[in-house]
């Protein structure tokens, strides 16, 4: 369920568009930022706000890789392994982080496609904040900096904190 602030924000977002359905992706982002993932209540509520069926909402939502249909913890770590990162060390970072945080429910490590950070390859994002020119070790340090509170992360869908 949207908080009352977010519900107001949701209505404001809907009003921006000539057709309310356009607000679907923004509202899913809003819900994910609030709840950490897209849960059943969120889809139901958004379907209601936009007068869509839940099948429609789910069908659209599941097309997009950023929307998580299961809880993913506090940090989404997106490691690029597309070609520039492939030839500059991305896979090693991915494997290192996958191993390191395998049992950590707070950290969700995923392999992603090119992040448009090839100039700083290999790169990753933590909650959609960029980090570039990494090694497995520096990547781990960055994640730990978030976890220890030295760094403040964006919200889970990339919304500003």
């Amino acid at each position: 369920m949207f908080s009352s602030d977010n519900l107001q924000r949701a209505r404001e977002i809907i009003s921006r568009y000539p057709s309310s359905r356009s607000a679907l992706l923004p509202l899913l982002h809003l819900a994910q930022d609030q709840d950490g993932w897209i849960n059943d209540e969120a889809m139901t509520e958004i379907a209601g706000l936009l007068e869509l069926t839940r099948a429609d909402v789910y069908g659209t939502c599941s097309f997009y890789t950023m929307f998580k249909l299961e809880p993913v913890g506090t940090y989404v770590v997106s490691v690029c392994t597309n070609v520039t990162c492939l030839v500059t060390g991305g896979p090693a970072i991915l494997h290192h982080l996958e191993k390191t945080y395998a049992d950590d429910p707070d950290v969700f490590v995923e392999e992603v496609e090119c992040l448009a950070a090839c100039g700083g390859a290999p790169a990753l994002q933590v909650n959609y904040e960029y980090h570039e020119r990494l090694t497995p070790q520096s990547a781990e340090q960055i994640i730990d900096a978030y976890r220890s509170g030295q760094r403040t992360a964006r919200r889970i869908s990339g919304g500003p904190r």
């Binding site: 889809m43 869509l52 099948a55 429609d56 909402v57 789910y58 069908g59 599941s62 097309f63």
Partner: peptide
Amino acid sequence: DPLISFFERGGHSQVLNY
């Protein structure tokens, strides 16, 4: 009655209801 839809995408695409 749009109660069935495509879910996911590409080679994982599938028809489903909610």
